[in-house]
Amino acid sequence: MVQVAMTVNGKAVSANVDSRTLLVQFLRENLRLTGTHVGCDTSQCGACVVHVDGKAIKSCTTLAVACEGASVTTIEGLAHGTKLHPMQQAFQDNHGLQCGFCTPGMIMTAVDLVNRKGNALDEATIRHELEGNICRCTGYHNIVKSIAQGAREMATQPQAAE
């Protein structure tokens, strides 16, 4: 067992874990933050995307112990109280989700995308940047619309630093 400590959604957390514990298992099982999902075994589907030190990563392909000292943001940490993050709001406004399973990873990927590529995103850029996130319900049509809106609105609504 290995001791690991990190900051998750602004809160200091620590635990003794089996070294093989993946970050996603640590979040879901130790912290009961079950919004981060596991949809595949090969690092392809993106349902597990969270931010580590402000960057989108796949928490199913990251050891918890390797996040010692890191700052982790999950889907549960995105809204400010009851005020949704503009990207979350955009997904609801544009029907960017159906079953909801891929959605947390999509939203976390989308926020990271805007952080890297800015607020004016064309369709081709959004589609290309989603190559690590699989959705089986929406055909991506409304996800693309959601992200374009969320990106625009992130410009007008300042975000807290992660």
Binding site: R28, L33, T34, G35, H37, V38, E76, Q88, Q92
Partner: peptide
Amino acid sequence: VKRKEDIRFITGKGRYVDDIN
């Protein structure tokens, strides 16, 4: 109408079988 169920899904509060222990 915008979906009522979305709020829990976009905030990570959906409750799927694997979330149940």
